[in-house]
Design a protein around this nucleic acid. Structure first.
Lengths: 128, 128, 128, 128
DNA sequence: GTGGTCTAGACCACC
DNA sequence: GTGGTCTAGACCACC
């Protein structure tokens, strides 16, 4: 599904949560789906099971998942969830982008100009 | 200066080139500066000297650096270079951002709207 | 096609590039032709595959070839290429010759005289 | 003094003779000088002593050297020799050059033109 | 010490 | 099977 960047500044458990969120936003995972078991996922990602457990716990706090003892962890059956996560990722990506542009010394006007220019060039991928 | 993401899909030698470019764009490195020696940089980044050399060689092809045998590798004394690299990184970042937004299902109008909104919120960091 | 001079001062990868260029100039290879695979050519020349790869990579930078992963390496379909390479080899050969003559203590007048003399003797090989 | 090209089409003993001739033409060796002993030279060039012996024998036939039993092999004390060898090498180099140009498809006119052009560009190295 | 070349060999991606 | 990346390590050229 995704890879862990072990040298990243972002903690691994947050990378896991982000990975799950992206999978939901892009439809790879859907409300009600079962997540991999903690042990299985830990092996697959090459991380400590405790780290996966922490990610799963946080996702439950965030209302994304429910853990059913003895059954596994499931994405909540919440139709709104997909939209909510998409919005969150979109805002997050935009903020990251704007910060990067600022760090490269771009003014607001420049950022606006470049985005408009490349948006115009870019095809409207899918109208679905 | 920067870290290598060993699990990234982007080859290490390209990560090195990008890292140098970012350092130039942000003023951490300036035209004429000497780069770390191949061996020294390889140890610091935790990669093989050959990988650093490949990055350095590519940068020489790109006209970014000059390698002087027995002396070291230097950024070319080219005042235009900084602007050129900044422009390149800006375009690259924008393209990556737009692609990510598209993959999250955003239309052009949505992308435009969100960027405008966050741009307005964001302070004009530095007027210098 | 050609042999490697292992004791030459000219690096092997440059000898390979020169060999390919000569083959193009003399019509043994034509635009669009597939080059030998890296491994196959390495065995044939008695050099390491990495050395062939370096030569191939440089030729791609020079715009001579296109490498298609899984398919092979091909001379670009560029009609101009043959003329361009011929010109390059002609100039190179002339420069080498003149340098050698100078090193033997020939003045410009002497070089001119000898070339004229031998040119006159030499038959116009092919009028085609 | 020079290196042997083991993969060359030219026999090694001729390469040795040529190497000696070039050394004479460029003044590295002078009439009357002693040549290296056959055994010593063979080790230095990495060839069989018999090969050096054949080269030395041919040079004696050519009147270039005299072998003095028990003393060694010497270039003949012949002032004309240097000029004669220079002329020979000059003609040989020119013939090789013209043949190469022909093989690249150059007409006499083209060869003449290119030589004139590069001769004009080339500085008159030494007026001595 | 610096960069440059080369070998040997592993593993991956695309087909 | 093809090209692409990377490591490990040797040896050379220039200073």
């Amino acid at each position: 599904m995704f890879k862990i960047e072990f040298t990243s500044d972002q903690p691994i458990y947050l990378q896991i949560i982000d990975g799950i969120k992206k999978a939901v936003a892009t439809g790879q995972l859907r409300p009600g789906d079962q997540l991999p078991s903690q042990r299985e996922f830990a092996v697959h990602l090459g991380v400590n099971p405790n780290t996966v457990q922490r990610a799963y716990r946080e996702m439950e706090y965030l209302g994304l998942t429910v853990a059913l003892r003895g059954l596994g962890t499931f994405l909540r059956r919440d139709a709104q969830m997909v939209v909510r996560i998409k919005d969150e990722l979109i805002h997050q990506a935009t903020k990251t982008f704007l910060a990067e542009m600022k760090s490269l010394g771009c003014s607001r006007e420049q950022i606006d100009y470049i985005v408009q220019q490349l948006l115009a060039e870019m095809p409207e991928c899918s109208k679905k």
